[in-house]
Nucleic acid binder design. Structure first.
Lengths: 341, 341
DNA sequence: CGTTCTCTTGGTATCGCTACCATCGTATAA
DNA sequence: TTATACGATGGTAGCGATACCAAGAGAACG
């Protein structure tokens, strides 16, 4: 653990030095810095002058220890390398920063044990709040969260038993709605391509939604119409080709994740399959790319940015004194019908 | 600043409690946790038992204050919402984590003053190292870095006067190489679309590279062939259309940034312009998307992941005791010739 | 058998800041 | 004018760990 990350004393000025040079007490410096209104104009000037003279940077580590208060929020996402999360992270980061908080980011790689290790590590750093893009957790994670009482936001799905606060949409409802939408448009043989289901309640929910819609549409639930694929362009392309080989009558493909749909679309362009003439393509998540592709791709708009913003806002409110109550925000979703279906 | 992020004493166990329950001294607990080999088997067992019994999480804030050592690295990127940075962040995060460090991320939005505020804030948090995706800085940033002596990695460009360590490629050389490549392929009227030049040495360098190559090719340097556009699909599309309107003879477009090329490619698909028949398209940065688009897009492969990895490795080595020497790593780039040119 | 050395263990003094309470001066009320 | 209150300042004691040094227990040595 940890290295010899020594920040040696080069010009290591502390508050008492500033106090001495300003001719005031350390407490006055502390106050002048944290709550300027609480000291007199005269004192403030003296302190400010000394602070500037030495470019003094208060040591927040010491501050946090002393006040038992931290201004760092921990965030765990399954993968940083994904523009969906990036949208959310940006929003979180912006809100936190506007309120004087910082963000510590880690990625779990979709592994629950890694999530546990990261939660422990972040709690050891005494983060003042956590955002988890995941709603199924280890027992130890649940225990730690309960025991420490850190405010937590869960995101990415609407769990039955949240740890604390939740901001998300329903993967089940979203997938069901899109499948139903395809049915309404007249498609009858709808393939479903999902991200890996293992340890991923979100994928699982989406698949359930797909089947639920088929049932409502009175269409047969054929498991061979469902393919599991890691995210990626090639994987989407492969999946579509395989589906069409096994089901020549396939008239639509619903790609529930990560650029799979675009991969499939490109494959159609390469093979000269008309979209939606030969096969319709629908996607999940409103990547910019989908709107600009030719043809533009029908998709589900998930308000990722809003999820991030509201998560951070809830957290900040709680940290600023709002009562600790379980909050469950469903930000919903929206079907965006475009040219590909 | 900072909120009432009080982590109240709920089950707040400290090292001395563990020590008491284990029947050893606090120092022994500390040692057993940080360097198990330094205590006897018997002690280690007692400590481990007590630690597990109470699910004790050492307080790293206190540890950092006491040891004057931190295990958090700060990272400032222009924007989190960009898969290029995401690749790098992922790599940094992985390397750091493998070595017991954590990552604090902030985004400057390409504003130097924001960068300054963030550097100050991160240094106040006493990060043990900094990674800046930017090579032009405020005076205050330069002063702070010099004064505190934090190890710093700069990335995104190869500056003439680095703050400390640099891991990057040359934007100038990359843009020049691609322009020369287009010339070699026989294109004679090459448009250049760049990201905003303001406060962005990277864009500036790329433009210089473009002009340098034109000169070498013996082609006229026509400023009206250069367009500035914020990143984005539509912006790329617009830029191409404008270029072709003003220069009907345009035979190639070099899009030096962020999905601009793909936007242009889609526009060609919409308008039925053959690529590269009517106009060739070249891009900067090897997004996955470019490889899978139809036609696949010629581009510059910048090893973003490697940049992140090596940055983090350099930082970790330094933190683990490597001598503080200026390092300048040019990771290079590669031209990837595909169907679009 | 005493001495020296090594290996473990423990005590104590910080680390740099903030909470809390005491103090002092002055404004307000009586 | 004296009593009361309030706002501004300062002193002191931690926050929870680690650094550093001292001390005790064996092992190895002559």
């Amino acid at each position: 653990m940890s290295g010899k990350a020594k920040r040696d004393g080069v010009a290591d000025i502390k508050m008492s030095d500033i106090a001495r040079h300003a001719g005031v007490s350390p407490m006055t410096v502390s106050r002048a810095l944290r709550d300027p209104a609480s000291v007199s104009e005269k004192m403030r000037r003296k302190v400010d002058a000394a602070v500037r003279e030495f470019s003094y940077l208060p040591n927040r580590i010491a501050g946090s220890l002393s006040s038992k208060r931290s201004n760092v929020v921990g965030l765990i996402v399954p993968s940083i390398q994904n523009s969906l999360y990036a949208n959310m992270i940006q929003a979180i980061s912006d809100v936190l920063r506007a309120n004087g908080f910082h963000l510590m980011i880690a990625n779990s790689g979709h592994r629950l044990d890694d999530e546990e290790a990261l939660v422990s590590a972040l709690l050891a750093q005494r983060v003042c709040g956590l955002v988890l893009h995941n709603t199924t957790h280890n027992k130890r994670v649940r225990d730690l969260v309960a025991k420490t009482g850190v405010p937590v936001i869960e995101t990415g799905n609407l769990p039955a038993e949240p740890l604390d606060m939740v901001v998300s949409y329903s993967n089940f409802e979203a997938a069901r709605a899109m499948t139903a939408h395809l049915g309404r448009l007249g498609y009858r043989k709808i393939g479903f391509v999902t991200l890996p289901l293992r340890d991923n309640d979100r994928s699982e929910e989406r698949r359930r939604g797909y089947f639920a819609a088929l049932k409502e549409l009175g269409l047969p639930a054929d498991p061979s119409l469902v393919l599991e694929a890691p995210g990626g362009f090639s994987e989407g392309a492969d999946a579509l080709v395989r589906l069409i080989q096994t089901h020549p009558g396939l008239d639509a493909g619903f790609f529930a994740g990560d650029v799979l749909a675009v991969g499939a679309l490109f494959e159609c362009q390469r093979r000269g399959w008309a979209v939606p003439g030969r096969v319709a393509i629908a996607s999940f998540d409103d990547l910019d790319l989908l709107r600009h592709a030719v043809p533009a791709v029908t998709t589900l708009r998930i308000p990722r940015h809003e999820i991030g913003r509201r998560s951070a806002e809830l957290l900040v409110n709680r940290l600023l004194g709002a009562p600790a109550e379980r909050v469950r925000i469903d930000v919903g979703f929206e079907i965006v019908q475009r040219e590909s279906t």
